[in-house]
Amino acid sequence: MPALSDKHSALHTQARWHWLVLAALLATIPAFYIELLEASPHAVGRGVYLLAALALGLAQWQLARLHAQARLYLRRQWLDGLLVLGLLASAVAPASGEFGLPLLLRFAVAGLSLLRMTDILRPWITRGSLRHVLALSAAVLGVCGIGFWLLEPRAQTIGNGLWLAFTTAATVGYGDIVPTTLASKIFAVFVVLMGYAAISLVTASIAAVWVESTERKIEQDILRELHAEVRALREELRALKQDSTR
Rank of each mutant, 00 (worst) to 15 (best):
S113R: 00
A64I: 15
Q69I: 03
T203R: 12
L162M: 06
G142Q: 06
T118R: 04
A53T: 05
R65Q: 03
A108I: 04
L141G: 02
K185E: 11
L233M: 02
G100W: 12
G173T: 01
Y33V: 11
S244A: 14
G100L: 08
A110D: 00
L201M: 08
F99E: 14
I206Y: 05
V48D: 06
E215C: 08
R65C: 00
A23W: 06
L193E: 11
Q242W: 05
A55G: 14
A207M: 03
V21S: 01
I186A: 06
I120E: 11
W78L: 09
V230Y: 00
Q60E: 11
V172C: 07
V191T: 13
V191P: 12
A68Q: 12
P153K: 01
T245I: 15
Q242V: 07
A52T: 08
M194Y: 05
G195Y: 03
T181E: 05
G57L: 13
A10H: 02
Q62W: 04
L226Y: 11
L50C: 12
F166P: 00
V191S: 14
S244R: 05
S200V: 07
A23H: 09
A27N: 10
I199N: 04
V140A: 09
A139N: 11
L226I: 06
K217N: 09
R231S: 14
T28N: 03
A183E: 15
T214N: 02
V211H: 09
E38C: 07
G195F: 04
